[in-house]
């Protein structure tokens, strides 16, 4: 059997690539094409969790246009008012430096 010289085989591969429109890459270099060819995974990544209805966000977006009531928030605010009336509310925030004045401390 007559052996085929490598140069002929190479020429054949080159011709085959030009006919079938594939990339001629005799050294098998990495071209990074797989990063461009792969599908984008973003849409399926973002769509993993089901949509949740966020009531407080909806109320906030319609605040000026529609009268909507967030019952939980109303109840909480009512509780805060009640507690403050009974003298059980959160103390007022200390002004900067007031604490140090009371203890006769000087900040270096």
């Amino acid at each position: 059997m007559a052996s085929v010289p490598p140069s002929r085989l190479q020429a054949l591969t080159k011709l085959r690539c030009s006919i079938f429109q594939t990339t001629y890459n005799p050294d098998s270099l990495r071209t990074g094409a797989k990063y461009l060819r792969a599908r984008l995974r973003g849409p399926s990544l973002v769509g993993y969790y089901p949509e949740r209805v966020n009531i407080s966000q909806i109320v906030r977006s319609y605040r000026n246009r529609l009268e909507m009531v967030d019952d939980d928030e109303e109840e909480r605010l009512q509780d805060v008012i009640e507690r403050r009336r009974r003298g059980k509310g959160a103390p007022p925030k200390a002004k900067k430096g007031a604490y140090c004045d009371r203890l006769n401390l000087t900040v270096i």
Partner: peptide
């Protein structure tokens, strides 16, 4: 990634 992994 394409640029960084491209050996050409």
């Amino acid at each position: 990634l394409f640029v960084a992994r491209n050996e050409t």
